[in-house]
Design a binder for these strands. Structure first.
Length: 455
RNA sequence: GGAGAGUUGUCUGAGUGGUCGAAAGAGCCGCACUCGAAAUGCGGUAUACGCAUUACGUCGUAUCGGGGGUUCGAAUCCCUCACUCUCCGCCA
């Protein structure tokens, strides 16, 4: 959540930022936060004064008792009743205002950075890079402006090119390939769990393992420490990273023990640093983790959920960084370069989008999505979302560091990104690399897969 | 699952109702001594909120696992939850 300091320091910037994120009633919400803060402060002052008086009297009673002055002590006791009631009253007022304020702050999203594009939806995302792209005219279109709005070129408007590509393509979608080579059995998954829980078999299972190992090896090479966290977490962890309270319905919940299945390794790995004060010398902390991720995906339907496009359980390697405010932007760029490197090594066509204010997540200050092009479905599939959360998560987590220079305790910045999520990578890999002989495994992956082809 | 013992500051560890935010030791930081280091000596060494200030804060409140209660007063008593350890049971 936002810090009060952020709001006091530059209220106008906060309100403008929230409006960029299309948060309705931004100005009113911020004013209410400040009003509640004033209320809390006033109540605390009164409470503190009353408590100080009470402490003084209590101490004097102790001394009188020690001196054997029973009556004077009893007289002092008589004074305390009213004070006690007052303290209770102010205390109630104070915590009431504080709770109301926190509750409100939890509903207010993070303020986006200045370079975040204006816009209400995915239509307004800014394509900043495209790679391994075979269609030259489109690359030129991108190169001209350096970055252009998605709607200008991605096929929705440029229908001629899209239609041509589709007409030329005789490629099978990945769900048919999965069947043809006996890689994934979706029906078996339905039988034992339900839709969205595929069963990987033989070479399909081996491909999963190869990708997990490849991604972890790359992360290790880039200096990330490998973490193997629990895949169920308590509610406090859910609040720490912002899945709770607003995205409650997206997580699987084990009611008996009040635990949640993680939707991403971000949750356990970031919460490692909840209620912690880190020495600046240890920053940036760079962790990576492979976990299964669980998402209820309530409300999804149609072509979005076909095959591997959207699953309830999937494998993902996540990279997480904790950093100083001064260095977090550099960290973010390193993470983007790392993820981009993975897609290059996998030889998949990809693009990188800077998400617009309206499309980015609640907690992010700056977010880039990585998408791979699926040549049989003719659509872009999101495979990574790499974000800087500024102090927004850290404030909830109480994740702070002690500055080397002046020993001051300050909020950290947190960042994370997928590097990478498997299913859509598998989808693109199968679809884009299909040949007469089988499915070609990219060179970088061959040592991990143990073969150059799925046959 | 049953029975019992615990949880104190960066760490070890004392403290069973009254100047206890907390003894002592270790660690760490600063200063002194030294050519330098070690040793030694002196001082400092939590967090949040509030208040104050140009600045330094001999300022206030809260915090001894979390929450609640008893009391004029709680690290200390009671309730409750979480966690750790020991024994029994069960189990991979």
């Amino acid at each position: 959540m936002l810090t009060l300091k952020q709001i006091y320091d530059d209220k106008a910037r906060v309100v403008a930022g929230l409006e960029k994120k299309h948060f309705a009633g931004a100005a009113e919400a911020i004013d209410e936060v400040l009003r509640l803060d004033g209320e809390r402060k006033a109540a605390q002052q009164e409470k503190d004064a009353a408590a100080a008086e009470m402490n003084k009297i209590s101490k004097s009673i102790g001394m009188l008792m020690a001196q054997g002055k029973r009556e004077e002590a009893e007289a002092a006791k008589a004074q305390t009743g009213a004070l006690k009631a007052q303290i209770a009253e102010y205390d109630a007022k104070m915590s009431e205002a504080e709770e109301a304020q926190t509750k409100l702050l939890l509903t207010i999203p993070n303020v986006p950075y200045d370079i975040v594009p204006e816009g209400a939806s995915a239509e307004d995302n800014l394509a900043v890079t495209i790679g391994n792209w075979p269609n030259q005219p489109m690359i030129d279109a991108i190169a001209k402006d350096g970055a252009v709005a998605l709607r200008d070129w991605n096929g929705e408007v440029d229908e001629a090119i899209a239609a041509e590509r589709i007409a030329q393509s005789e490629k099978l979608p990945h769900w048919e390939l999965a069947k043809k080579y006996n890689l994934i059995d979706f029906d078996l998954g339905v039988k034992i769990s339900g839709a969205g829980f595929p069963v990987y078999i033989g070479q399909g299972a081996r491909l999963q393992r190869a990708l997990i190992n490849f991604f972890l090896a790359e992360a290790n090479k880039a200096g990330y420490t490998e973490i193997m966290p629990p895949t169920v977490v308590n509610a406090a962890s859910g609040y720490g990273t912002g899945q709770l309270p607003d995205k409650e319905g997206q997580m699987y919940h084990c009611e008996v023990d009040d635990l949640y299945l993680i939707p991403t390794a971000e949750v356990p790995v970031t919460n490692l640093y909840r209620d912690v004060i880190i020495d600046e010398a240890q920053l940036p902390i760079k962790n990576c983790a492979y976990t299964e991720c669980f998402r209820r995906e309530a409300g999804s339907y149609g072509k979005d959920v076909r095959g591997l496009n959207r699953l309830h359980e999937f494998s993902k390697i996540e990279i997480v960084r904790i950093d100083t405010p001064e260095h977090s932007d550099a960290s973010h760029k390193e993470m983007l370069a790392h993820v981009e490197g993975l897609l290059q090594k996998l030889e998949l066509p990809y693009r990188i989008l800077r998400l617009s204010g309206g499309d980015m997540s609640f907690t992010a200050a700056l977010c880039y999505d990585f998408e791979v092009y699926s040549e049989a479905q003719h659509r872009w599939l999101e495979v990574s979302s790499t974000s800087n959360f500024d102090t927004y998560q850290a404030n909830r987590l109480k994740c702070r560091y002690r500055r080397a220079e002046d020993k001051k305790v300050t909020l950290c910045h947190t960042l994370n990104g997928s590097a990478l999520a498997l299913p859509r990578i598998v989808a693109a890999l199968l679809e884009n690399n299909q040949t007469e002989e089988g499915i070609r495994i990219p060179k970088a992956l061959q040592p991990f897969f143990g073969d150059d082809m799925i046959r």
